[in-house]
């Protein structure tokens, strides 16, 4: 049985009085312990899917099931890592990681030792007493990951967690996330707009189109880890995804910028080993 299941999910928001449909008939499943990426251009509603599974938003129609039961609200068994970390600035790094344990009523000594253990896991032992404003973007995301993992969630939801980081930091954190996942084996849903990131990390990639978000494709990536960007099998996946998304990106640009934008043919056919076109 799949652990997370979205059945015929629709979601609309009110925007200037009119209903704006962001998700259209989404069906997806995630098995226990699976690493799934949701990949799509900005504005395709992939973050909304994360929010729905987290219980932060309710679908307009359809069912969201976790372990066969409908999601009714947020729960510490489904933790979220947000793109901008969303750390509590008034708490130290340790305080941030202890937060969820404190909410759960764990006694101080135990929550401290558990928080320290997870801070070690994300290599932040030296920064236990620092405050968020003193940390770099990458370090903030490490805290956010530790803060989400310390609650030992069954499902870890990551909403473009590395989107704002430089390429070097991103690649380091991707590898560390994989290591942690192999260790603790939570189910992971990872949202990204980066094709290389999705294919490098996931067991399966859902490709989502925009306005409204629809699932266009789902690809199982069976390439064993550790994966290398030059692996031809990965490149084949990337190429296929870019083909599907190329039309999508063009559609988005045309909607946003009007018909004056010219798209050279080459953009769709760019070989996937070039970084061009990797970020959609």
């Amino acid at each position: 049985m799949s652990q997370v299941e979205l059945k015929n999910v629709f979601k609309s928001f009110r925007h200037n009085g009119a209903a704006l449909e962001v998700l259209h008939d989404i069906n997806l499943t995630v098995a226990q312990g699976e690493f799934v990426c949701l990949l799509g251009p900005s504005g395709c509603g992939k973050s909304t899917i994360i929010n729905l599974i987290a219980g932060l938003e309710k679908p307009s129609a359809g069912d969201i099931l976790v372990d066969g039961k409908p999601v009714t609200g947020p729960d510490a068994s489904r933790t979220v890592v947000f793109q901008d970390a969303a750390l509590f600035p008034w708490l130290s790094v340790l305080g941030n990681v202890e937060f969820g344990l404190r909410m759960a009523g764990v006694e101080p000594r135990q929550r401290r030792s558990r928080a320290l253990e997870y801070l070690r896991l994300v290599h932040l032992s030296k920064f236990v007493h620092a405050y968020p404003h003193q940390l770099s973007g990458g370090m903030k995301q490490r805290v956010a990951i530790a803060r989400a993992l310390v609650l030992q969630p069954a499902i870890l939801l990551l909403d473009e967690p590395f989107g704002a980081l430089d390429a070097q930091t991103r690649s380091v954190l991707q590898n560390e996330l994989l290591e942690i996942w192999e260790l603790a084996r939570p189910t992971i849903l990872f949202v990204t707009h980066n094709v290389r990131e999705a294919t490098g990390l996931a067991d399966r990639v859902y490709v989502i189109s925009s306005r409204p978000g629809r699932i266009r494709d789902a690809q199982a990536i069976t390439v064993p880890r550790p994966r290398h960007a030059e692996d031809p099998a990965l490149q084949a996946h990337q190429h296929k995804i870019l083909g599907i998304l190329g039309e999508e990106v063009e559609k988005v640009f045309r909607e946003e910028l009007g018909e004056t934008v010219h798209f050279p043919e080459a953009q769709h056919d760019a070989p996937p080993d070039q970084s061009r076109g990797m970020h959609i």
Partner: peptide, 27 residues
């Protein structure tokens, strides 16, 4: 809002949410 949402996903609600999230955020 992002602070409130993050707190909710980590199990903060009711008075706990108020004293440990809302009030410090208002400082």
């Amino acid at each position: 809002p992002i602070i409130r949402r993050a707190a909710r996903t980590m199990g903060a609600r009711g008075l706990n949410d108020f004293w440990f999230v809302v009030v410090p955020a208002a400082i």
